[in-house]
Design a protein around this nucleic acid. Sequence first.
RNA 1: GCCCCGUUCGUCUAGCGGCCCAGGACGCUGGCCUCUCACGCCGGAAGCACGGGUUCGAAUCCCGUACGGGGUACCA
Length: 490
Amino acid sequence: MTPPVTVRVRFCPSPTGSPHVGFARTALYNWAFARHHGGTLVFRIEDTDKERSTEESYEAMVGAMRWLGLDWDEGPEVGGPHGPYRQSERGDIYRDVLAKLAASSYTYDCFCTTDEVAARRLEAGSKTMGYDGFCRELSDAQRAVFEAEGRKPVVRFRMPEGSITWDDLVRGDITFETEHVPDFALCRANGDPLYTLVNPVDDALMDITHVLRGEDLLSSTPRQIPLHQALVDLGISTVVPRFGHLPFVMGEGNKKLSKRDPQAHLFAYRDDGFLPEGLLNYLALLGWAIAADRDVFTMDEMVEAFDIADVNPNPARFDLKKAEAINSAHMRMLSIEDMTDRVLPFLKHAGVVSDPVGDADAQLLEQAMPLVAERINKLTEAVDMLRFLFVDEADFAVDPTDAEKLLDDDGKRVVQAAYDALADLPEWSTAAIQEALQAKLVEEMGLKPRNAFGPVRVAVTGRRVSPPLFESMELLGRERSLGRLQRALA
RNA sequence: GCCCCGUUCGUCUAGCGGCCCAGGACGCUGGCCUCUCACGCCGGAAGCACGGGUUCGAAUCCCGUACGGGGUACCA
């Protein structure tokens, strides 16, 4: 199933709150679909809900897309021929479309209050919820009565008779009987347009060909298709887009990942040291597979292989462990230079190096990164791994728990022996250090390697977990290394 | 209540009628490697929700049931 070459998709979050992982997954699939087909990705901001939309959230949405590296062809900051791309700036457009719709009686004014509708339903014992069409065929006289009462109408779409069927890109044929789809409101009584109007209208006006969105919007599709058809009929647009409804990303338990869930926040992963490409790769796996026996891939590879028809319709649970494992695979794909660049902000933030970083520290970092690159799974892990190299001697501290475990009396004897072996070492190199310690601690004292080097490691790096010991000591230098050994004996 | 969607190892998935007494990954687990950690390598346990059909043959198609999810707003 090859879509036309003129693929145009959109990603249109509402700027309410902080972007979450579902946001990223939907953005990713739209992006991959657009790129795969050489199409256009429109980034639109759905901020018609003035109560909940915030500028801060808008900035976060744009920032999230930038961090993820998902670029868009039309939208905020890049413009485009169908702007503006924030719905709060498109009021005139919606008013105009609403007027055209009303003139062709696709819509009607409805004066009912929510309470009245509910009361009628109760009385009739009706099984269907939603609006009952009371104002569909209002006479001028009835209308006049309502207006005399000072009522302001909402505008409702007149749902056609029959059924609505579409071939969902993810799920295949889906049919709704329109008797189960009540006439819905397109704008508030005060004239403010609602999502129900604005979303399909913008898709139509922006020539969107494929709508890929969350499963939660599936039941709004039977309302949107007739509206699109009305817009085509009125010459406002030319085609009804195709729809594809993506499965949810679920959290713990079996609930859709909600914004209140701490695990849901996208920036939490950024701050935790995830690589955007690692997170994206993991998110892609939640509903799509590149091959039967493979799950680590680059975004280029995803673009090449992505087919919306392969997307799995059932909801997927977010698994942090696997996300970390995938991220770790991407960490190992990074060059040392690249990883260094990405680790640097975390080192600065933790105060391990100054900002901007000094020449000496930069050089030390360059030498140290190869030692840690293979043993960290997230960028943040470099901080604890490297701190001992950069810290001032006065501020150097040994982890109390590790000290208690390894720097007991036996441990101190080992450290003393290590000091003796190294004090007069003619050449301070990894090989020489290793040779000297090996000879003294292992061969002479008969210690097992892990028991020999453990106490030394804690004394020198401050932790039981560190980069390789001998290399670390070389980088630290003779004076600081010996100083720390001595300090551990105190 | 009504409408819609979904259901393969604990989790994410491959599978689109015979290649499957179901493959991969994460996790778990036994071992190897090893100066810690991490990486890497070898092995193991673990799954087609249930019941009917259709068919020579079903994880794959159809129908029910159960369970899960979504919608049912002058939110998006």
